[in-house]
Design a protein around this nucleic acid. Structure first.
Lengths: 170, 170
DNA sequence: GTTCCCCATGTGATTTTATAACATTCGTCT
DNA sequence: AGACGAATGTTATAAAATCACATGGGGAAC
């Protein structure tokens, strides 16, 4: 029995607003499968499992946390197993890396090209993805001025999420 | 003789445009000294040296690269020596950390409050700082919508700098 | 259908980055 | 002088990431 267990019980997942998490996991997996099929990519068992783990947890996870889950499920237990699967998923846009945290999180808007931006709560560690169609303002204007060609962007804000601001004031 | 040696000879420093590097090093050190004096901060010899090293190199350096330079100059040779000095400099805005590279770079606009943004060339490893007064567009609007309070931002673009685009086309 | 090759996986070892914990020194205030 | 707090030095360890090489499976070429 290795398919999606609820896992909802633990921590406090979600972006900043609640939603139907179980269906969002299976929908995202289907989207990934369809995308791979259409583009000649191989969503192998390890890769699929890593994506599933990240979708279920619905928060940023370190590579070693993913690896632990993987090995519990019967996959290899050495770092390259996790890193290689993560590389594949990041390269193809199913997962994003949060540079600030050395951690990974499932994409909230799979399938569409986007420059992801993240809001990271220092208090509860929740990470919300705010996708933007284009590279962000100041950066793109600076790039245009200097003639720099942007290939990838890392846009992350650290701060306090609405729920934790609430708590502070209580 | 441990004061600023030229070091200009090596690699290819600078933002993307050349400038009077030697004077920019000493100016920045003076600015830092003045700021610390005015704010009751202690720019101790190690801290000053680390800042000087980063200013001289004028590129992103890993903590261990800084540490090596430090120990050559007669300071401690263990990681905490470098990390602590770097923490101080980052906290007080004299140095920025490039999350994407796990590296540090001297601030190009010391003294003024700013949300730094960086352009990192994959080809020659040059890093240019494009300071912005306010948190970048997409991020700040997303934060406002959701009620997220931004405390710090990481904004980095990876790509190709003008000089390297030039080379490609040659 | 077999052979070959590429790609993915598994594993062991190592490198790189960062922090914990504790002793020592130095300046300052009293 | 004595007491305190901040900064430094040192030992050790933790966390994150990569290297190098062996194995296996699935298609394409023949």
């Amino acid at each position: 029995m290795t398919t999606h267990a609820p896992s909802e019980a633990a921590g406090k997942p979600q972006g900043f607003a609640p939603h139907d998490h179980k269906s969002c996991v299976s929908t995202a997996l289907q989207t990934a499968e369809a995308y791979c099929a259409a583009n000649g990519l191989r969503l192998t068992p390890v890769r699929r499992k890593v994506l599933e783990i990240l979708l279920q947890e619905h928060k940023a996870m370190g590579a070693y946390a993913v690896l632990e889950r993987l090995s519990e499920e019967g996959y290899g237990s050495q770092p390259p197993v996790a890193y290689r699967a993560l590389d594949f998923l990041v390269t193809n846009g199913f997962v994003h890396k949060i540079a600030r945290l050395n951690a990974f999180i499932a994409c909230a808007h799979p399938g569409s090209e986007h420059a992801p931006a993240f809001m990271i709560c220092r208090s509860c560690d929740t990470v919300a993805e705010a996708s933007t169609a284009l590279p962000s303002g100041a950066l793109s204007s600076a790039a245009q001025e200097t003639g720099f060609r942007i290939e990838q962007t890392v846009i992350e804000a650290e701060g306090t999420c609405p729920a934790c601001i609430e708590k502070e004031n209580a």
